[in-house]
């Protein structure tokens, strides 16, 4: 997930233009500065690489690992005596 501190964003669009997976777009809500902070696209391939968080010159972006995606991660399977244990 991408969290944006909207009022810290100056609207440079560096995060939007440099996301390697083109996962960000400008939101349609103006912030206090009169710019449109970024948000994740409804359909996106964001893999939480954190580039946007790292290069935003204004500390406005936080990338958190997606809970939903996390739970979808395959669990490793331990097979003991023919019984499948998910760990």
């Amino acid at each position: 997930m991408i969290l944006v501190l909207e009022d810290w964003c100056k609207g440079c669009e560096i995060c939007v233009k440099r996301c390697p997976l083109n996962a960000l777009e400008l939101s349609d809500k103006l912030n206090k500065r009169g710019v449109y902070p970024p948000k994740l696209k409804a359909e996106n391939e964001c893999n939480s690489c954190k580039l946007c968080e790292l290069i935003c010159p204004d500390f406005a972006v936080t990338v958190t690992l997606d809970e939903e995606k996390k739970s979808k991660e395959p669990k490793s399977r331990l097979i003991i005596g023919g019984i499948v244990n998910e760990v």
Partner: peptide
Amino acid sequence: AERLRKKYLRDGMLPTIFCNGCGHGAAFD
């Protein structure tokens, strides 16, 4: 990033005075 901001940024000082698109902000991150 949230913890980083809390720990290292001086309270109440952000946003920076830097212009939109200035690279300087990334340096201290």
